[in-house]
Design a protein around this nucleic acid. Sequence first.
DNA 1: TTGTATGCGTTATCAT
DNA 2: ATGATAACGCATACAA
Lengths: 337, 337
Amino acid sequence: MPATLRDVADRAGVSVRTVSNVVSGYTHVSEQMRERVMRVIEELDYRANPVARTLRTGRTGALALVVPEIDVPYFSELARDVIDAAAVQGYRVMIDQTGNDHQRERELLLGEDRTMLFDGMLFSPLVTSAELLEMKHSRSGVPLVLLGEHEFDGRFDHVAIDNVAAAREAVAHLVGRGRRRIAAIGAQPEEEYATPRQRTAGYEAALTDAGLPLDPEWMLPAPHYSRADGYRAAMELCERPTRPDAIFCFSDLLAVGAIRAIFDAGLSVPGDIAVIGIDDIEEGRYGRPSLSTVSLDTPFIAREAIGRLLARIDDPTEAARSIVAPHRLVVRESTAD
Amino acid sequence: MPATLRDVADRAGVSVRTVSNVVSGYTHVSEQMRERVMRVIEELDYRANPVARTLRTGRTGALALVVPEIDVPYFSELARDVIDAAAVQGYRVMIDQTGNDHQRERELLLGEDRTMLFDGMLFSPLVTSAELLEMKHSRSGVPLVLLGEHEFDGRFDHVAIDNVAAAREAVAHLVGRGRRRIAAIGAQPEEEYATPRQRTAGYEAALTDAGLPLDPEWMLPAPHYSRADGYRAAMELCERPTRPDAIFCFSDLLAVGAIRAIFDAGLSVPGDIAVIGIDDIEEGRYGRPSLSTVSLDTPFIAREAIGRLLARIDDPTEAARSIVAPHRLVVRESTAD
DNA sequence: TTGTATGCGTTATCAT
DNA sequence: ATGATAACGCATACAA
């Protein structure tokens, strides 16, 4: 049975108020009193009960991070940085997975009694809708920061890269390498999601910049941004009468699958088909060939997101702000000559 | 301001007791009363405050999962399964990272006020010591289930594969492929940690089974089981006057790094050197060559671990049990002929 | 079947 | 500077 504030107070012959003052580092407390109380705290191995503290203060010291699937490398690398950044500020992180499932996402966002279990929420959706977020926000009032969605400007805090520019640079790089038949993998069937739409826009802009034609036939969907999706789409491209000479994948994971498919089709990377992704996951650095990509600064994203969230927890009336994280083209073997 | 039990009671003209009964699905409550209360609950959009409930009941509905680093694929894949298995039972999961850092691990385990923030703990250490666990357990009394440590039998619940057998089968497979100079990567400098020691034992047993000599020179350490560790160690092996013709890596991540190193050294896999790992992470299935490995059933591990933990939460006096998870050799290109 | 009252362990208000 | 005491929101022992 853990010792309580009362136990300590009784044993030290003082009031709970005094003990509480010592514990929470209150200024007006005499040195001798302080020492006496501290000794008893040591003796009884007292630790404050965070649940009781939370009930009183309304602060839990926990944040929620919602991602589609934690085992997708980009999200696990992001989670690592988020957990670290949160720890620096004294917060712990709860992770929820939406499983790329709309129904599940709904439940999670609007879910029953989640409220008050955490002080704020970091939401990194692959797909999500503004309405859902509006509902969440208005119903629970939980401070919310979006990761990777640059669409809902003004309404929510968010931190993300400039997706259009990132995609454009990736494709421009392929053009610069002399590629002309450039396919894209990762467009979403529905046009309602920000990230794929923006990357599609960047892809199209780069082709237009280069005076290349836009061909919808060369934009393949990838519902889950998984290795399997990338494999499937690339294999389909390889089997066509006229093959692409480069593929821009909307994520590194898609690219990993695509490279394997190209190899299985008896072709080479980058010889026959150059491949570039987005994310810069570590897996891409060790593959054969190593993967060219657009690197996102996840520690930066995590730090800024945590910063915004804590600011908003502190002052819920603050205006929503939009933070653009830096990105950087990283050229490796998969697009080398 | 969220509605409380009292608000609902007042509005419905009943006592808090009655509302509480309705909310928690108490059996003895008249149907009309039930409906009346439910209607008010809807109206006020009432949700029970989980913190208050926790203070009262002592149950938080949260579990902690402690891993070295969440962005290590094996752990993120395990985390996915743990979160899912916990969700099925109505629990949420908090993730903590020890960062492979002993000091940090200490803090985390013995840490201040963590207690009572979760009902139980799943601990999946790369490295840890029995003493630390003893301290944790005795001090906080938090129900604890170990993942992947088969050493502390009898003292703690744990679920893990038979590491000795898994390693032995992997190495036997290499022998069966005609390999004779079989190196190992992943031994820990200190001999105090269970997993590496057991895998070392399996490696040695398989060599002995095959009548092959044991050479300490061919057992390379890998402090973090990272791709970089695997790369470094394999590169060193490649530069020796007599190279191995096979490498047994204690984890798939090490194997990924090793394969890249062998390639960079101008050699081929499996032509010059065959490579096998342990874990069966998805990354290994898409690499070139695809990675032979020993597959662990992480969904099984997660389910069993959650099951044990909940049983122990329910009845802390239960005897500790040891669950052996199945493993299976998976042969792919990296050890093919 | 339902109402009343107490306590979970803190923090914070009001005295002194 | 410190003591007494009232919440925080819920669950439950005890009554009715």
